[in-house]
Design a protein around this nucleic acid. Structure first.
Lengths: 227, 227
DNA sequence: AATTGTGAAATTGTTCACAGCA
DNA sequence: TGCTGTGAACAATTTCACAATT
C-alpha cells in the first residue's frame, strides 16, 4: 500500500502534471462514480473515454502519470480506481470551506449538494450587510466580514470561496490571504492578485456564454466540450 | 468599415481559432471595459497582459488572428478595441436566454447582473415542480417544463441554460435540442450527448474546488490562474 | 523610442502504434 | 485475444525575436 503511495509521489515529483490532466481526472472520477453505482467491476479506457468524450489513449496517458492502475487485457477496476483518484485529487477527506458574500451566487452555493458530495463542506459564511449578519442560511449563521481573519483562523478553514462584487473582491482576498488561507475559488469577474504560494482559481460563468455567443456568430466548429 | 469585417471574416475562415484564444478574448474584453471606465485612451499589449496575468506576446498574437487593431509605437485604442471584441464575441447585441431548473443554482442565475451586463438576458424560466410553476422570479413567471418545445419556439430563444439535477439533464437537453436550440450551457455535472451542430458548454463548479484540493495535497506548483 | 504584427523556434499536449502482459 | 502502459511521432500552442511603423 505504501509502495503505491511512494510510486504516485515519485511520478508526481518527476513529471509535470498539466492543468488539463487534472481537470480530466475530475471527469474520470465522476464517470467512475457512476459506473460503480451501475454495478460495473471493470472498465476499459475505451469505455471511460466514451463516457466523457475523450480518447482511450488520453485516458491511459493521464492515468499513467500517477501509476499503473489497470490490468492488461482486462481494463481498470472501477471501485479501486475511483478510490485512487479520490486520493490523488485529495477528495478522500472533508474540506472545511468558508464562503464570503451571501448574495445571489453565494446563497446558491451554500445549498449546492454537489460540493458536499465531493467532500467540500461550507461551514462558515461571511457578509458585510448588517441585515444578513446573524441571519441563518441552511443552519449556518452569517458572520461579520470584519471578523474574517480571527474567525478563519479559529475554525480550521483551508479553502475560501469568494462571491462578492468585483469592486471589493481584491480587498476581501487580501484579508483572506492575511488569514493564512492558501486556496481560493473566486466567482467575482476580476483578476485578483495573490502571493505566489496561494492557489487561486476563477469561476467565470459569463465566459462560457460568451464562448457560445462567439460560436454562433462565427459559425465555427468550436463544439469541443469543456467541462 | 466593411473592409474590417471582411478582414475578420477572412482571418476566421483561414485560421483555426483555438478555444483558449476565445476564452482569453473574454478576458481582454473585461480588462478593456475597466480601462475604458478608468479613462484610458490607449493601452499596450504589455499593460493588457499584466491586467489578466498573461504575456504581451500572447495578447498580440491572439488579437492578430482577428485583425490589426493597434498602432506601432502607440498601442491599442481602448474604446475601439473593446467594441471590436464585443463584435467578435457576438456580445454587441442582446441574447434571449431561457433557464431550465429554478432550484438553487437556477434562481441565483436569474438575478446574476454580470449576465445582463454582457447582453445575456434570461427571459424565460422552466421547472417541473408544480409549486414553482406559475410563481414569479424577478419578474418572470415560471413555465411548465412540459411546454418547453412550444414555448421555446414561440419566443425566439437562442440559448438555454440547464440547471437541473444530473439524473434528468439528458432528457431535458433532448427536448431542448428538439426545440431547435443550438447553444446550451449546462450546469449539471454530467456529460450530455447533443448532435454535432449544437454547441454545448459545461460549467462544472466542483471541478475548480477539486483542482484546489489537488494542488494543496500535492503541493504542486499548479498556480496558473484559469478564468 | 516605443510598440505592433508575425514568421520561426521552443515548448507543451495529444495521438499513434506496438511491446508486454493477463 | 484484449487491453494497458509508454516512448516516439505528431499537432497545437506559446514564446521569441525582430522588421515595420508611428
Amino acid at each position: 500500500m505504501n509502495d503505491r503511495i511512494d510510486e504516485i509521489t515519485n511520478n508526481l515529483s518527476r513529471k509535470r502534471i498539466s492543468e488539463s490532466t487534472i481537470r480530466r481526472l475530475s471527469l474520470y472520477y465522476r464517470a467512475l462514480s457512476l459506473l460503480e453505482k451501475e454495478g460495473y467491476e471493470t472498465v476499459s479506457s475505451k469505455e471511460l473515454a466514451k463516457r466523457e468524450k475523450l480518447t482511450p489513449a488520453q485516458v491511459r496517458k493521464d492515468l499513467s502519470f500517477f501509476g499503473s492502475f489497470g490490468t492488461r487485457g482486462l481494463g481498470y477496476p472501477v471501485a479501486e480506481l475511483r478510490r485512487q483518484l479520490a486520493a490523488i485529487l485529495g477528495i478522500d477527506r472533508q474540506w472545511q470551506v468558508a464562503l464570503i458574500g451571501v448574495g445571489n451566487i453565494g446563497s446558491a452555493l451554500v445549498g449546492y449538494k454537489e460540493f458536499v458530495r465531493q467532500g467540500f463542506q461550507i461551514v462558515k459564511l461571511f457578509d458585510n450587510d448588517q441585515r444578513k449578519i446573524g441571519s441563518n442560511h441552511k443552519g449556518i449563521v452569517v458572520s461579520d466580514i470584519a471578523d474574517l481573519e480571527s474567525e478563519l483562523k479559529a475554525d480550521s478553514i483551508e479553502m475560501v470561496v469568494i462571491a462578492v462584487p468585483a469592486t471589493v473582491a481584491q480587498y476581501i482576498v487580501d484579508d483572506v490571504v492575511n488569514a493564512g488561507i492558501k486556496a481560493i475559488l473566486n466567482f467575482a469577474p476580476v483578476n485578483l492578485r495573490v502571493p505566489s504560494d496561494v492557489y487561486l482559481r476563477n469561476e467565470n460563468m459569463s465566459m462560457e456564454l460568451e464562448y457560445l455567443s462567439f460560436a454562433i456568430v462565427n459559425q465555427h466548429a468550436q463544439k469541443r466540450v469543456r467541462t
